[in-house]
Design a protein around this nucleic acid. Structure first.
Length: 660
RNA sequence: GCUCACGUAGUUUAGCUUGGACAGAACGUCGGUUUCCUAAACCGAAUAUCCCAGGUUCAAAUCCUGGCGUGGGCACCA
């Protein structure tokens, strides 16, 4: 199907944040010094720091408050409250001193002392002049993370079922975080870790091999079929038939040994499901650099290497008596109990494999995988995978050897992850290794929605955990389809002059943006209670609102036939214009603080305020029909706002629409 | 039992790192706005014992202690 180009803004690809390569270089990007785009907030804080005699801009930032309520001023300074105590002088005098020191600041036009606060007003003419020279398509990018290598691992769904909305929270967080870090200048590898040797995969194999369930079902996406039907059925049968459980053990053993009929069947089924999952993720705009498999960690004997290393540095110890007799344990810091890594039968537990994997990430293992290309993704980037093939390519990007690793894994695995973190940072031994478990709360179902899926008990106000085994979950594909239908009706009713294809493109983009935005806009630690009916009602200040704002910006520019000037006399600004200008100028600061804190809500909060400010400007100010001297400035403002909004949206993985 | 996270208008929530003016939004409710760049919008009104009790401080939603509520974790499961 042909995509009409004019409907979409091309998503910026943040090229300069690509990984540094040892043997392979895409276009000679190397590690050239990146241009720093203007960060006016930093400029202003810098000047204030030196004028006020403070240590650094971080200290200054503490005393600068932007909430001024009804007291006036664009921001206010609370430093006098501290100074008066420190120097034992009256508060009004301390505030007066600060006011005097700020006299003549480049970007501050006026100051005023009220109740010990120093309220400040910007010189908007200077702000506008400064910004005017510095805005291009890359506005907001930064070199904050320059030369720092990071690996982000996210999604990592068991390859036996379709992706459900709980997984979508993981993928949305992981992908948005990756986009943010790239935009902030980090050198990134994004991986999807596939547990292809676990019990869940074995369950599906049991169904096909021993219960003679069909391998595929015509007309049904394979991840849906295997997850919704085979996996659920097998788990139900386990309850009445303990003998079937033994078959699972058999399958697991065969998979581990490899090179047999069952292992091959398992591998085929894993690949089918994985590819189907990647389709869903691609629809969501979620892409990776590398897929790696648990089985490869075993085949490459990474665990053995890791084990030998830990033994040699004394990080683990063989218990000779007590209840853990015969186990190898990791000695954790005193209050916690030592963690068993190797069972008394010699097999390794999950956390053990995870430590080996983390050691690979941080370059603490001498060995590496071999790699091959898996597919060219829709974003134009190659997806690589680890491979067992002996004749695989020698030239590939450097994936590991990172300083920071971020694993997006839900909060229920905090304990295991804490063990991995402690182990890996200890093994790193002063190399500054930084292992982050990015934990997030689960997506649970409202009682109403749970009932619809066949859950019997109904507790008032409670929430139900989704369960793949019991078949209680909402698949991402299905929900996206429903969202799409709802949005398509809406789009058609609002756009009689837009063609069928265009309406479909708009609806699809809005469905993706809406789902992703809802998954990241709140504190990741909070549980999301998902209600199907509520979710389809569409929050009126969600992604649709943001895209609508962009369409309004684009609409103005589309209808204008004058050239955008970047140098002019700045007119007196209205409050509406001031707010939009302030939003634009604080965007680089938003990116840096979000990247620093790994906090996506900083960006989503900004997006929502920015859209609201622009809409207020839009309805209260005319651009095209304004007199010429003012029109030029407003046209520039809209252009700058458009760039800022597109970059902010792209950072979160929202699809920017220019018409809807 | 031990432990971690969360608790802010009817609902969803921001602010808590680094204490500072009247706790900021959105949905829903009520009222208003369309000869003008897209009304998927805008403007206005009402709505909060910031879970409770103590403490620290000139000053606490924010820091400390104790409690209550909700959810998670506490495997030789993955």
């Amino acid at each position: 199907m042909q995509t009409k180009v004019w409907l979409f803004v091309t998503q910026p690809i943040f090229k300069f944040g690509r990984r540094l390569t040892l043997e392979w270089s895409p276009m000679g990007l190397k590690s050239s010094k990146m241009e720093r785009y203007p960060n006016l907030i930093t400029e202003i804080l810098k000047e204030a720091t030196s004028r006020l005699g403070l240590k650094n801009i971080d200290e200054t930032r503490r005393y600068f408050k932007t909430q001024t309520y009804g007291y006036g001023g664009d921001f206010s300074i609370t430093l006098a409250l501290r100074d008066s105590k420190l120097n034992k002088i009256p508060i009004e005098k301390a505030a007066g001193d600060i006011k005097a020191k700020l006299e003549g600041s480049k970007f501050i036009k006026r100051t005023e002392v009220v109740n010990g606060y120093v309220n400040c007003w910007y010189d908007y003419t200077k702000l506008a002049e400064y910004l005017m020279g510095g805005i291009n398509d890359d506005y907001g990018k930064s070199d904050y993370g320059k030369d720092e290598r990071v690996m982000v691992e996210h999604t990592s769904v068991n390859p036996n079922k379709a992706i459900h909305i709980g997984h979508v929270r993981n993928s949305s967080i992981g992908d948005s975080l990756s986009r943010l870090l790239r935009f902030a200048g980090y050198d990134l590898t994004v991986t999807n870790y596939i547990d292809d040797t676990g019990a869940q995969v074995a369950d599906n194999v049991v169904g096909v091999k021993f219960l003679n369930l069909p391998r595929k079902k015509p007309g049904v996406k394979i991840d849906h079929y295997l997850g919704d039907e085979v996996y659920v059925k097998v788990n139900k049968l386990y309850e009445d038939d303990p003998a079937l459980m033994e078959k699972r053990g058999l399958v697991l053993k065969a998979i581990e040994e490899g090179n047999n009929e069952i292992a091959l069947l398992a591998k085929d089924m894993v690949m089918d499901v994985l590819k189907a999952q990647l389709q869903t993720l691609s629809r969501l705009g979620v892409f990776f650099d590398l897929v790696n498999y648990e089985s490869h960690i075993l085949m490459y004997k990474f665990w053995a290497t890791a084990f030998a290393h830990m033994k040699s540095v004394g990080a683990i110890k063989l218990e000779t008596d007590g209840k853990k007799k015969g186990c190898w344990v990791f000695k954790t810091a005193p209050p916690d109990e030592d963690k068993i890594l190797v069972r008394s039968d010699g097999t390794v537990v999950y956390a053990g494999k995870d430590i080996a994997y983390a050691m690979w990430k941080h370059g603490l293992l001498d060995s590496d995988f071999r790699y091959k290309k898996m597919e060219l993704q829709k974003n134009g980037e190659e997806l690589w995978t680890t491979t067992l093939d002996k004749d695989s390519t020698k030239t590939h990007p450097t994936f590991n050897h990172v300083k920071h690793s971020i694993s997006v894994i839900d909060i229920r695995q905090s304990y295991e992850q804490a063990v991995v973190k402690e182990a890996i940072e200890k093994l790193g031994n002063g190399k500054g290794i930084d292992y982050v478990h990015y934990e997030y709360g689960v997506v649970a179902l409202s009682p109403n929605t749970a009932n619809k899926l066949g859950v019997k008990e109904t507790e008032e106000g409670g929430a139900f955990q989704m369960s793949g085994r019991k078949g209680v979950y909402i698949n991402a594909d299905n929900f996206l389809d429903k969202l799409y239908e709802t949005l398509l009706d809406e789009t058609k009713s609002k756009n009689q002059n837009l063609g069928e294809t265009e309406c479909k493109e708009v609806a699809e983009s809005l469905a993706v943006s809406t789902l992703r935005y809802e998954m990241i806009r709140t504190d990741p630690k909070k549980i999301i209670v998902f209600d199907l009916d509520e979710a389809l009602k569409l929050e009126s200040k969600g992604a649709v609102y943001i895209d609508y704002t962009l369409s309004r910006m684009a609409g103005i520019l589309r209808n204008s036939n004058s050239k955008i000037k970047t140098s002019m006399a700045i007119p007196e600004l209205s409050d509406f214009e001031k707010r939009v200008l302030l939003d634009i100028l604080r965007f680089p600061e938003i990116i840096e603080s979000a990247a620093k804190a790994l906090d996506l809500t900083v960006v989503s909060g900004f997006l929502s305020e920015f859209a609201s400010d622009f809409n207020a400007f839009y309805t209260n100010t005319t651009v095209l029909k304004a007199e010429e001297s003012i029109r030029d400035f407003r046209l520039w403002l809209v252009t700058a706002a458009r760039t800022t909004l597109i970059n902010a949206m792209s950072t979160l993985g929202l699809v920017p629409l220019e018409r809807m």
